[in-house]
Amino acid sequence: MNSSVTIKSIGEMNAFARTVARSLKGGETLALTGELGAGKTAFVKGLARALGIKNVVQSPTFLLMKCYPVGKNQKPAHQSKSSMRGKPRTDFHALCHVDAYRIKNERELLTIGLGEHLSDPGTVTAIEWADLVPELIPKNAIKMKFEHGANGKERLVTVTRRA
């Protein structure tokens, strides 16, 4: 499944991030690609806000990885709804924000614990510059390609999910 959206402002990017947040159950990997300034971090900021995370989400380029707790009262809307319908609730408890920009060797990310986060059904992991660490990206990852648009405020996002 492939879909493309044109985003005209930072506000629209946040709205797009809210839509993505609603579709997440926990356990997903978001493989973000696109050149410098294309909006990968801006998207994750929007995603974090949509998930109720209050922390300031800084660019993880230097730190490589930063994880934020997704609190109980801050669950995205779909989870409380599904629990009302009596379905088992996924314990979606963390958003991990990773950046492979500086990475020269994929093991760097594994030794700081990325493996555990990727296999944790309660964690959503968003990886910037995912194309630099192809071996680490799970096959069922949601791929999101960010491109610069016609002007400084416009971005193109192409989402590819495995059918």
């Binding site: 410098l36 971090t41 801006a42 800084q58 660019s59 380029t61 230097f62």
Partner: peptide
């Protein structure tokens, strides 16, 4: 005060790359 996104050193590194 602190940066809300990129650090100053990161701005140097990334613009140098460009």
């Amino acid at each position: 005060g602190r940066t809300k996104d990129d650090a100053a050193g990161e701005a140097f590194d990334k613009t140098a790359q460009m």
